[in-house]
């Protein structure tokens, strides 16, 4: 018996939404960006003697599976701490340069996960964001150019094949969903905060001694700007999930996000939070246009002719229509 037309239509839409093929470039850019911010984040946890060894700023080993307690008790704490640090450093570096890309992403995810068990004390919301987003990147083919993997593949005369490689869009959709979800969730919690509703949050945050970058008092004449900024931030976070879906507000919502995170970065010392969130915005780029963007930047050392080509024409037939992504 034939399936009802409506179910067929739904399945077609479902398949198109989650399984359209897109060029690998956007995944490559995400890999590079997450590798870079992962390294920035890791450098903040140096020297190793500060956060990785048994005598460092590390919680007393209790609870969990007892692995850490076992290692500490038997004198392997230092070796394990240094090994974990070197492992994560290696994985993020491999992500950055695109060497053994798939394994590097898996390793970086597992490494950051292990770090959250090993020492959660110096970790902040940004580290959680990075870990979650890397979980989704695991499922994508991140070996596209620019990467050492692609360069090596080019040397092995696979250039024509590498130029047309694609992957499903669903990991990218999940990253977008996750970023929108983070903003919506945090926005709604903020709505329950007194200082957000009375517009005084930015006034208080800019004055906090543990966060402020500049030891200055905001003149009373400009307090209105801080109040307005508080409300804009609240509205933007709650509205992000909807506004990002609409083509005519997408650019504005991303531009506002970039301005907001750059503003946070400039005025507050929040560790790696802002770079991590900014890196995640790459996921909102149109994946069909990314190859063109990379070609313009002359980043494709293995495919020098691509800059002259029209990426739309180059894309395989089953690549998604740019207007739908």
């Amino acid at each position: 018996m034939a399936k009802p037309a409506r179910i067929d239509r739904f399945l077609q839409l479902w398949e198109r939404f989650w399984f359209e093929e897109i060029p690998l470039d956007v995944y490559a850019l995400l890999r590079i960006a997450f590798g870079a911010v992962g390294l920035i984040s890791l450098f903040g946890l140096m020297p190793v003697s500060n956060f990785w060894l048994p005598d460092s700023l590390i919680p007393l080993p209790d609870g969990g599976l007892g692995v850490q307690a076992f290692l500490f008790r038997n004198g392997f704490g230092e070796v394990a701490g240094v090994a974990l640090f070197v492992f994560i450093l290696t994985c993020f570096t491999c992500m950055l340069v695109g060497f053994r890309s798939q394994w590097a992403v898996v390793g970086a995810f597992l490494g950051t996960l292990a770090l959250s068990f090993w020492n959660s004390l110096p970790l902040a919301g940004g580290n959680e964001v990075l870990s979650v987003l890397m979980f989704y990147l695991i499922w994508a083919d991140c070996s596209g150019a620019p990467s050492l993997d692609a360069w090596l593949a080019g040397r092995r005369a696979n250039r024509s094949r590498a130029a047309t490689r694609t992957d499903s869009i669903w990991p990218l959709r999940l990253i977008r969903f996750q970023v929108a979800y983070i903003y919506l969730n945090t926005g709604l919690w903020k709505l329950l905060g007194d200082a957000w509703r009375d517009g005084s949050t930015i006034h208080y945050v800019l004055g906090l001694n543990g966060f402020q970058r500049f030891p200055i008092d905001i003149p009373a004449a400009y307090q209105w700007a801080l109040t307005l900024g508080t409300y804009v931030t609240l509205a933007w976070e709650i509205g992000f999930a909807i506004l990002i879906l609409l083509p005519w507000t997408r650019a504005l919502v991303i531009a506002t996000g970039i301005a907001l995170h750059l503003g946070l970065w400039f005025t507050l010392e929040l560790g790696p939070f802002s770079p991590i969130m900014l890196a995640s915005y790459i996921a909102f780029a149109n994946p069909v246009r990314v190859p063109e963007f990379i070609a313009r930047l002359h980043l494709r050392s293995t495919r020098p002719d691509d800059a002259k080509r029209d990426p739309q024409r180059e894309s395989p037939a089953n690549v998604v229509d740019p207007s739908t992504v």
């Binding site: 870990s131 983070i182 919690w189 903020k190 949050t201 208080y204 945050v205």
Partner: peptide, 19 residues
């Protein structure tokens, strides 16, 4: 999965300097 999520950053910001 290691995705325990508590996205409440600055949900209720401190209103005092701490030392």
């Amino acid at each position: 999965l290691g995705l325990g999520q508590q996205w409440t950053m600055f949900g209720s910001p401190p209103t005092r300097d701490e030392y």
